[in-house]
């Protein structure tokens, strides 16, 4: 890849230095290590890949990780949109504190979130006990995993939607009203289309984060192979067995998925920029 400067030479100095350092740093820290994974993957035979992915344990882990992340991101999309709306449009006591707290999952170490959520949702915990009486097992079940995933990916939709909602021109909503639209029609036909790209971007980010999440999930999941074992944990187990080819095979698909999500997020953001309010 060449990052050539086009056009005339800039008068601003430092291109070689900064570009050189950036590319070197990123290569050493990210690109070369990630290509190692590719190298290991290249050594895998089709047979090994087939064995890995036909194993019911691998499939169950993928089903759980993808399904759980999808549900967690979906829950966050709905509540995130609602919370963003409330934070932008309404004034009520405690709004600022709530707004600040939204970032907590980004700042809180995932292990701390993991043990705390486990303490809440374990059968001995305050909510876990209630759910247990109702016959619902929260911790050490897929539900617990979804709760942990929802926790770590909670801020994304709120933070992508808030600024767009803030920027919606007052005149556009007024125009809808003068043309006879009621509040619901104005929301569905005018506001929602404007913020949809942002909501979807947040959804994709939340999904990407939830799929790869490890720290908060391992405590609450119970880690039973085939039932409550997520993909990152399976990779971890294979690494602890020094089964590098096995780990590589499982990780490869997750990594490809990450690249696809990154691409999707980029496309969504480009779309969001195009349809942002004038």
């Amino acid at each position: 890849m060449r990052f050539a400067r086009s056009g005339r030479r800039s008068v601003i100095p430092g291109f070689r230095l900064t570009m050189g350092f950036s590319v070197l740093y990123m290569s050493l820290l990210v690109l070369i290590p990630l290509s190692t994974l590719g190298l290991w993957a290249g050594r895998l035979s089709w047979q090994e890949l087939w064995t890995t992915f036909s194993a019911s344990r691998t499939l169950a882990a993928y089903r759980l990780s993808l399904g759980g992340a999808l549900i967690a991101a979906g829950v966050n999309a709905v509540f995130g949109l609602l919370i963003a709306w409330v934070l932008v449009r309404y004034r009520f006591p405690g709004r600022r504190i709530l707004d600040t707290l939204v970032d907590l999952p980004f700042a809180l170490p995932t292990a701390v979130a993991g043990i705390s959520l486990t303490a809440i949702y374990a059968p001995t915990g305050i909510l876990g006990g209630l759910l247990d009486k109702a016959g619902i097992q929260a911790a050490y079940s897929p539900l617990g995993i979804i709760i942990a995933m929802a926790f770590v990916s909670l801020p994304f939709v709120i933070r992508t939607t808030q600024p767009v909602l803030q920027d919606i021109d007052r005149e556009v909503e007024e125009a809808a009203a003068t043309l006879g639209a009621n509040r619901l029609q104005a929301f569905v036909r005018v506001i929602l289309p404007a913020i949809l790209p942002a909501v979807l971007t947040g959804f994709a980010m939340a999904f990407a984060r939830a799929v790869g999440e490890y720290g908060s999930v391992v405590f609450i999941s119970g880690n039973m192979p085939g039932r409550t074992e997520i993909v990152p944990l399976l990779i971890m187990t294979r690494l602890e067995e020094y089964n590098y080819p096995g780990a590589t095979a499982v990780a490869l698909v997750l990594l490809v998925l990450s690249f696809m999500m990154l691409l999707a997020i980029n496309l969504l953001q480009a779309w969001a920029r195009r349809s942002a309010p004038v």
Binding site: I32, P33, L34, T36, L37, L39, W40, A208, V211, G212, E213, Y214, G215, V231, P232, L233, I235, M236, L239, Y244, A247, T248, A251, L254, L255, S258, F259, M261, L262, I265
Partner: peptide
Amino acid sequence: FSVSPVIAGMVFVLL
């Protein structure tokens, strides 16, 4: 940001 932290650690183990 989009790579799972486990994979982030793993690539250094592989290396």
